[in-house]
Design a protein around this nucleic acid. Structure first.
Lengths: 224, 224
DNA sequence: TTATATTGGATCGAAATTGGATCAATCTCT
DNA sequence: AGAGATTGATCCAATTTCGATCCAATATAA
């Protein structure tokens, strides 16, 4: 073999196409540019393209460009459905602490009152996991809303979509015993208080604690 | 340099339609105006429209206008298309530092090598904002990939579709002068080094610095 | 209804961009 | 050392894009 390899480039491009980065009918960048992007000679890149063309993924027209002929867009929404429980926790770990910080900055009084309401609801749902879960979802959604950041709101919505899937409701029945709910409620209080007193870092840390608890109860449940 | 082809315009419009930016039965802007919007000759734009018409997405009536005929998937709602520049920065602020931490935990050597490659490319693109931006996008995408978290990867993909929109390319032209690119390159190095030496918090902090810089240059550009 | 403006449709040559092809030099692995 | 792959460079032919101009169909306002 040698340094980079036409096969390696082909492999990488195949993944890009299958992942939906390039979709049907779309034109790939020019071969000269693609070669530079992959850090490879144009000759090698053309070998890679030729390989993919023989597989029926691409079609290249002289003087025009190289076009994607096949592709399965079904892979995109699957990323959400197939998300593993721990993957979801990690995603929330990334998003929600910062959402707390932004909520401190941009949140409005009426949203904080709404959060207070939802927390009260959860505190009255200690024996009802179903109702607790609904309020909990609304709590995190409202938190996202209070950032006034449409993109973040949308991202949280997507994550909530995952949480409402079948497997997740089952998982929740396993983890949501009254003791856990009480703990979650205390944590929600801490988060809300920190936001109301305008302490961004305290709020973020409180959220991290909350998510850490969720991760623990999840791993414990899946271990049994 | 890289001229924009009809297929590229078609790609953008296809995604705009599928994302719901243009709704069913709605009339598109006039072809002359659309051509200017895309920074392309009217001839090229018409080729793009013709492609989309053959795909059944559009229908054009001489003397009247071009109308959207299909648009049901609604997989990606408006929130993504209408995201403001600062909203996007905040979303990345939430996601990417934690992605750095996860990359330290789960990243593989070949991905770090790919990141190194991309950094080199960016360091050779100081005078070419277009190429820099492409490599930059790939850098952050690869970073997400290295977390092995499909949900996070998907979220970053969604955000990247926003970054590729028209307004963003225009905004990039305003902010990406050689000095800024050099600074970004240094920051990318710091991030990558921290990940390679397995220092999650350093990597996260470096990423925060990087995004803070991006935010500053953005606010400065929009202030002028 | 009529006049005017706006829309898409079509064509043209010049310039730019694209993929196709080839070759000697160099590198990598056996 | 030898076989095979990669590189970097050059030239070529096919195609596209551009910018401009003119035409026809429709929409709008008087």
């Amino acid at each position: 073999m040698a340094r980079k390899g036409a096969a390696d480039v082909a492999k990488q491009m195949r993944r890009s196409i299958e992942s939906g980065e390039y979709r049907r009918f779309e034109r790939l960048p020019a071969s000269r540019q693609l070669a530079e992007t992959f850090g490879v000679a144009r000759n090698t890149l053309r070998d890679a393209l030729y390989q993919l063309e023989r597989e029926g993924l691409l079609q290249t027209k002289p003087g025009s460009g190289t076009y994607v002929t096949a592709n399965e867009p079904a892979a995109i929404p699957n990323a959400l459905e197939q998300a593993a429980p721990l993957e979801l926790i990690d995603a929330r770990f990334a998003l929600e602490p910062h959402i707390c910080r932004l909520s401190v900055l941009y949140g409005r009084r009426e949203e904080f009152e709404r959060l207070d309401e939802l927390t009260l609801q959860m505190e009255h749902s200690i024996a009802d996991p179903q109702k607790f879960a609904e309020s909990d979802t609304a709590f995190h959604r409202t938190l996202a809303t209070s950032t006034r950041n449409n993109l973040l709101i949308w991202l949280i919505e997507q994550i909530n979509t995952v949480r409402s899937l079948d497997e997740w409701t089952r998982m929740r029945r396993l983890t949501l015993d009254p003791e856990i709910i009480k703990l979650y409620n205390r944590q929600h209080r801490v988060i809300l208080d920190a936001i109301r007193t305008r302490e961004p870092e305290s709020a973020a840390i409180a959220m991290k604690d909350h998510l850490e608890t969720a991760r623990l109860s999840l791993t414990r449940a899946s271990a049994t």
